[in-house]
């Protein structure tokens, strides 16, 4: 029943996202899809601006939330997410470097995948050198991820400074921006994200067993090493492909699984689909706020998500790491 409410919320938000501020009665809006009139400005805005925007928000939110849900389980850290493990940062800086070198959109997508893997690898490597083994709760990994992300952001900004024209085009993108101008990226990269999510769904059962304990999983006949690597790889690919579309949209992957988990429990085959819907909803709401809160000016949705995400991040730290001492 609760999940029905989630879907109703999603539908309502989608409707609001398309309709709010368009100045059309809902029936006239419906005509956009049934009987499109290319000369009607309102129709044009809804079909070519708002619909792509809503689709990007839904796709990116869903993919990032799934990826975050899996990462939190695999790394055994409540603060793990694509944005905190350096995946988004790495993908972002590789795409920017690709753009500076003059690569096309498709090649940038491949660069994003390589970058996401490189970012995650770098974060884990730094963490291991700084003594991850001594720290059972894996907080050092989050620190290393933050350092890698900080470095990536610095490098991306520096690269963009060398090319003012590119800078204007990518300045919004590097802080995460759900925007209809990235619709062509969505059409090129959406299948990568869903393919990776599909792999994760197939692996949901063994992955959940691994989360409960590696020995338990091994005794149940799971190839722990291979499944973990495959799960990690798929979630990195999913998150990087989402980053390739609209930049590093922060913290959906961190926050949404935490919001959903109390209702679904930790089992991934329930957690992931619900996280996907909730993630899409979160991005849709963030984009709606970014667009309408300061109307007629519109804010960047990535910035809204970062602000909200930072707050929730602080709350999570208080709950998970300061609770024992308080």
């Amino acid at each position: 029943m609760r999940f029905m409410a989630l879907f109703v919320g999603l539908g309502l938000c989608l409707f609001l996202h398309l309709w709010l501020g368009s100045g059309m009665p809902p029936a006239a809006m419906a005509k956009t899809f049934l009987d499109f009139d290319p000369d009607d400005y309102g129709h044009y805005v809804i079909l070519y601006q708002r619909l792509p925007r809503a689709l990007i928000a839904l796709h990116v939110g869903a993919v990032l939330a799934c990826s975050g849900a899996v990462l939190q389980g695999l790394v055994r850290n409540p603060l793990a997410a694509p944005s905190t493990l350096g995946i988004s940062g790495g993908a972002m800086v590789f795409v920017v470097a690709g753009a500076v070198l003059g690569l096309g959109t498709a090649a940038q997508g491949i660069a994003a995948l390589a970058g996401g893997a490189a970012g995650a690898g770098a974060a884990m490597w730094v963490a291991r050198l700084a003594g991850l083994g001594l720290d059972p709760r894996g907080m050092v990994l989050i620190l290393a991820g933050a350092l890698v992300t900080m470095l990536c952001m610095g490098v991306a900004n520096a690269l963009l400074l060398s090319d003012p024209a590119l800078r204007t085009a990518y300045l919004g993108w590097i802080s995460g921006d759900i925007n209809h101008v990235y619709a062509d990226r969505l059409t090129q990269f959406w299948w990568i994200g869903w393919l990776a999510i599909g792999v994760l769904m197939v692996l949901a059962k063994p992955l959940t067993l691994i989360m409960l304990g590696t020995e338990k999983a091994a005794s149940a006949g799971v190839d722990v090493r291979r499944v973990s690597l495959l799960g990690l790889g798929a979630s990195v690919i999913a998150a990087s492909s989402a980053t390739a579309i609209c930049g590093p949209v922060g913290f959906v992957g961190l926050v949404v699984p935490h919001l959903v988990r109390p209702f679904t429990g930790p089992a991934l085959w329930r957690l992931m689909p619900v996280s996907a819907v909730a993630g899409g909803l979160a991005c849709l709401i963030a984009d709606l706020i970014a667009r309408e809160a300061f109307s007629p000016y519109s804010l960047h949705s990535g910035v809204v998500l970062d602000l909200a995400g930072g707050l929730v991040f602080a709350l999570l730290i208080r709950r998970h790491y300061l609770g024992a001492q308080a």
Binding site: L79, T84, D135, M139, V140, I142, L143, A146, M150, M153, S175, G250, F251, H300, G302, V303, D306, L307, G309, G310, L311, F313, A314, I317, Y321, L322, Q325
Partner: peptide, 19 residues
């Protein structure tokens, strides 16, 4: 570590303000 993690949270919020 708690201090450092909280630092990351504060840093994230402030960097979105700079953005």
């Amino acid at each position: 570590l708690a201090l450092l993690l909280m630092g990351i949270a504060v840093e994230t919020m402030l960097s979105s303000v700079t953005q």
